[in-house]
Amino acid sequence: MIITVASGKGGTGKSMVAANLAWSLAASDPVTLVDCDVEEPNLHLFFPEARAVVTPVTIMVPDVDPDRCTLCGDCARFCAFGALVAAKDRVLFFPEHCHSCGGCTIACPVGAIAEIPRPIGTVTERAITTSFRLVTGTLNEGEVLAVKVIQKAKDAAGSAAWVILDASPGTSCPVVETLQGSDVCILVTESTPFGLHDLALAYDVTSQMGIPSGVVINRSDGKDEAALRFCKEKKIPVLAVIPFERKIAEIQGSGDLISRRDPVWKERFRAIGGACRALWEGA
């Protein structure tokens, strides 16, 4: 099954939950963990020993043949993103504006536009154990098409018993792209007004997409009434409450996983996986 870990708010502990969940489930099942936070992927930091195999991600962009081009400007007028301008003696191309729609090749009346690949990021694969793979999408600096890199990272994930997708914060296109096709979403929140506010936004997205979701309250100081009330109101199951504890912070802060260090946490995360499966089967 495919689980997306999302949050709305940044810094709630998405990556912590995703990595621990993946590590714990991999004790018995094949798991692929996918870092879909392509603008700042960091899950690999939990697994510094693993060897990385890097594949470039490219998009197709126009390549104008100056011998055939009549400078009519149809391609530029078609482009909604201003990636092409038909100047006096040549067609100018602004690659960072191109969304790779291919429309200019169709709009060109003389067939002067071919498509060539342009790199915008990478997909990195790591075998952490025999049953645990990590796939990392990375968007190159200055590029905007995060969605294309997320698609490629998800493609590379293939199918495992558990595919766990770590989304970026927020509720915009990259998050929606990550969620697309997921069976269940884990929404990680913290019991602050900010965490709750953004949890509501993220829940709006998952419910509109028809993806059943459960909540993990992280860094709980025991005063979770507002978050619990929200979950009760919306009938969202609370999958786990992770306390605000120095020991957890120390392990996490050293780049380790609490489920790797402590078998109790491993079982707790395996239980979160089980609850996700129950959510999916009940949907």
Binding site: G73, A76, R77, C79, A80, F81, G82, A86, F94, H97
Partner: peptide, 13 residues
């Protein structure tokens, strides 16, 4: 996005 190049094309046209 890309309003600069699109506006430029408009003036050229």
């Amino acid at each position: 996005g890309g309003v600069g190049p699109r506006a430029a094309q408009f003036l050229l046209d």
